[in-house]
Amino acid sequence: MAALISIRGLKKAFGSFTVLHDIDLDIAEGEVVCVIGPSGSGKSTLIRCINRLEAFDPESTITVGGIKVEQGAALAKVRAEVGMVFQSFNLFPHMTVLRNVMLAPMRVRGTTAAAAEIKARDLLARVGILEQAEKFPGQLSGGQQQRVAIARALAMEPKVLLFDEPTSSLDPEMVGEVLDVMRKLAGTGVTMLVVTHEMGFARQVADRVIFMDGGRILEAGTPAQIFDSPQEDRTRGFLRAVLNH
């Protein structure tokens, strides 16, 4: 099967400092891929290149659903197909939760307000937060805000969802509710690429786990391969450090 996301020779540098070295990666439709690795290894940069929040080397190619990710008119099209959930939620603070979820379908897809609202309420119900629809983001807990952010991304019916450490800025007691929503999503066949430090989630939910270090994919495989019999010293060292703290 053709890959939904195809990354070839991805290079990214900030000035003279190379952050990603020749990354090749294919992600199939419906696949759930977790990206793990030490801080500064380039995980965020990798997924931010996929919707081109970071510009990358012009020699590199990324395609999503067959469309090349490049500056220009097609970029908004790609972005509409790629949902993203951020560590810091980035909800629009001046709009109600409902408007947050309705905005992009109306503006990008031309959905009518009535249809967008039905859709938004349905999604808010799915992430268990419908009763907060009329509130503003600032009135919600972190876990609730992140669930709204997931609903907002889903409202565009994206082909793939990117998550950049979606639980890292949450109080510990709220991590579970967000991971639950993500676990349910993964069960519905949504393609997901998740940067996470939640090893339990990665082991349980991922079809494939990618270990990054120093701007390279050092090792990739099933959760069992990566967590139970890692091949690389760096992977072993990283897992020992995160699992034993």
Binding site: L53, R79, A80, S88, N90, A104, R107, R152
Partner: peptide, 14 residues
């Protein structure tokens, strides 16, 4: 905050 621009871009807003 930059995150507001990024969230908008990620949603495909012009």
């Amino acid at each position: 905050p930059r995150g507001q621009f990024e969230a908008s871009a990620a949603l495909g807003l012009s």
